[in-house]
Write a protein that binds this DNA or RNA. Sequence first.
DNA 1: GCCAACGTTGGC
DNA 2: GCCAACGTTGGC
Length: 153
Amino acid sequence: MKYWLLKSEPGSYSIDDLAAEKKKRTSWDGVRNYQARNLMREMKNGDLCFFYHSSCPKPGIVGIVKVVRQAYPDHTAFDPDDHHYDPKSDPEDPRWFMVDVRIVRKLARIISLRELREHGTGALSEMVLLRRGNRLSVTPVTKKQWNCITSLE
DNA sequence: GCCAACGTTGGC
DNA sequence: GCCAACGTTGGC
């Protein structure tokens, strides 16, 4: 089993939005970056992901979600009315993919980006999220990093 | 709002 | 294949 981190802007979709879903799950659609797409295609059912709030007053990890459906074509790319429409994605040969995730739990408290950075010389020094200039919305997390972060809670 | 970092596009 | 221009991300 692998671990990941998924970014979302709480202004558009927050951990509370996910918790409020009837089935406690959602499709992780709208990813339009090749690196992030490739990582999403590596995700397997049962993999765990941190839910990260970005572009907000207090960026950080706010919850844990589980992959419940592995990568399948992102149909929002085929919809001209969708904000993430991509005319270059052909339904016969889809360019973009999404996974479905279910909430496992909200963390008792937010583990802020600042706090993660403060562990920069320890177990988290190699964390992809913390790399300079990183903008990927989907990043891998090692078991060691996962255990370190969950122990901070 | 600023701006650094990065990805994508498109002319050549 | 190079690279300048442009758009986006995301912390601050």
